Simulated scan of single mutants.
Amino acid sequence: MIHPNPDQALSKCIVYFHDGNSRTFYSFDQKHKRSKPNQALGIRRLEKMLLQHFKGTWETAIIYENKINGKELAKYKNGIRIS
Rank of each mutant, 00 (worst) to 15 (best):
M1Q: 11
M1E: 13
I2L: 12
H3L: 10
H3K: 14
H3M: 06
N5Q: 11
N5A: 07
P6S: 07
P6N: 04
P6E: 03
D7G: 01
D7W: 09
Q8L: 15
Q8D: 10
A9T: 03
A9V: 03
A9K: 01
L10D: 01
L10W: 03
K12P: 05
C13A: 09
V15F: 05
Y16S: 09
Y16F: 10
F17H: 07
H18I: 08
D19Y: 09
G20S: 01
N21C: 05
S22D: 12
S22Q: 13
S22H: 11
R23N: 06
R23Y: 11
T24G: 01
T24F: 07
T24Q: 02
F25Q: 00
F25E: 00
F25S: 01
Y26R: 01
S27A: 11
F28H: 08
D29P: 06
D29E: 05
Q30M: 11
K31N: 13
K31E: 13
K31S: 02
H32Y: 15
H32C: 09
H32P: 00
K33I: 13
K33C: 07
K33S: 13
K33H: 14
S35C: 13
S35V: 12
S35P: 03
S35Q: 10
S35H: 15
K36Q: 14
K36E: 15
P37C: 08
P37L: 11
N38Y: 06
Q39F: 04
A40I: 15
A40D: 15
L41M: 13
L41V: 10
G42W: 04
I43R: 01
I43L: 11
R45Y: 06
L46D: 04
E47S: 04
E47P: 03
E47K: 13
E47L: 06
M49I: 02
M49E: 03
L50C: 05
L50A: 01
L51I: 05
L51E: 03
L51W: 05
H53G: 08
H53M: 10
F54S: 02
F54P: 01
K55Y: 14
G56T: 12
G56K: 13
G56M: 13
T57N: 09
T57C: 05
T57H: 10
W58A: 04
W58R: 02
W58T: 03
W58V: 08
E59M: 04
E59C: 00
T60Q: 08
T60H: 10
A61W: 09
I62G: 02
I63V: 12
I63K: 01
Y64F: 14
E65Q: 09
E65L: 13
N69P: 00
N69H: 08
G70Y: 05
K71Y: 08
L73K: 09
A74D: 00
A74M: 06
K75Y: 12
K75E: 12
Y76H: 07
Y76M: 04
K77S: 14
K77A: 05
N78D: 15
G79K: 13
G79Y: 10
I80R: 14
R81F: 10
R81K: 15
S83V: 06
